[in-house]
């Protein structure tokens, strides 16, 4: 990064004004881990957004509000009813990076290995952007393209909202990796709600093995109203597995990437179902 100056505002408005005035020549900096992958040579003013008080996890009316500068470690350490992001945070590379990387930085620019976007899709998250006015975007909207395209100069992602899990619901997350700190080859998240022994609602999202994280609509459709179980999961998986264009990363073939997805879709559905059942 070619930072020619830095600013350390302590108020959100102050930060936004700075960013707006400087426009293209400024960039918000949260955990700053992105620069490992993205070497931007153009001269920029770094605007440190870690001192704006945007961090913290609050439960409001059954919905978790996660401040944009909440670190992955904070998400990992948080323990409260219906909180599930610790399962995702645990898979997020290494301790020092979990200590630095933030919710905001991890979702405004999506990489194949990005963990949080996949989980947020399955959890029906809402993303709050503070610009001149506040905007709320649904996860599918937000991740339909590289999310930073939604942000104008001076806009900041300020929080992410996810409904807390309640009884009868389950969530599971799987990241296929060779070692605990590996980049993902295939990421799958599933959320599932039971009603009267049937699947009332379900959301499955995949990442890493597809160009952008996405929901698996056809699999979801095949499951809604169905009786959960190995046969139903397998059948639903078959119904939707070929919707995305699977892409093998880091030396694996496209075919194997598809195969991994097919195995783990069934696996995470099974796990989410167990949780929903209260097992």
């Amino acid at each position: 990064m070619n930072y020619v100056d830095f600013k350390s505002p302590t108020q959100l408005d102050e930060a936004r004004t700075l960013l707006k005035e400087l426009g293209e020549s400024a960039s918000p900096v949260a955990g700053s881990t992105l620069h490992v992958f993205l070497k931007d040579e153009s001269p920029k003013v770094a605007v440190d957004i870690l001192r704006l008080g945007l961090n913290g996890i609050r439960l409001v009316d059954g919905v978790y509000h996660i401040g944009a500068t909440t670190t992955v470690t904070d998400m990992l350490n948080h323990r409260q009813h219906g909180w599930v992001l610790d399962r995702v945070a645990e898979a997020f590379v290494t301790q020092p990076i979990r200590n630095m990387a933030t919710m905001g930085g991890s979702v405004v620019r999506v990489f194949p290995w990005s963990d949080l976007p996949v989980a947020l899709l399955a959890l029906n998250a809402e993303l709050v952007i503070t610009g001149d006015a506040e905007r709320v975007m649904s996860a599918p909207e937000f991740f339909a393209t590289q999310p930073f395209h939604h942000l104008q100069a001076g806009d900041l992602l300020t929080s992410v909202r996810i409904p807390a899990l309640v009884e009868g619901q389950g969530f599971a997350y799987h990241k296929e990796r060779r070692t605990t700190t590996d980049f993902s080859r295939c990421t799958i998240a599933a959320w599932l709600a039971l009603d009267d022994g049937k699947i009332a609602d379900v959301r499955i999202a995949v990442g890493a093995a597809v160009p952008m994280p996405r929901r698996m609509d056809a699999v979801e459709d095949a499951l809604k109203g169905a009786r959960p179980g190995p046969a139903a999961f397998e059948k639903a998986m078959q119904a939707g597995i070929d919707a995305p264009r699977w892409k093998g990363l880091h030396g694996i073939s496209d075919e194997y990437a598809r195969h991994l997805a097919s195995v783990h879709i069934v696996d995470v559905l099974t796990k989410a179902h167990e949780e929903a059942k209260g097992a």
């Binding site: 290494t94 060779r178 070692t179 605990t180 700190t181 590996d182 980049f183 880091h250 030396g251």
Partner: peptide, 26 residues
């Protein structure tokens, strides 16, 4: 896990510890 990946022009594609994987304590 350790493996050199090359493209068809002989360029190594994974010369970093993110892609060339060593075990850690975990």
């Amino acid at each position: 896990t350790e493996e050199y990946l090359f493209n068809d022009k002989g360029r190594m594609l994974n010369p970093n510890f993110g892609d060339y994987k060593l075990y850690t304590l975990s």
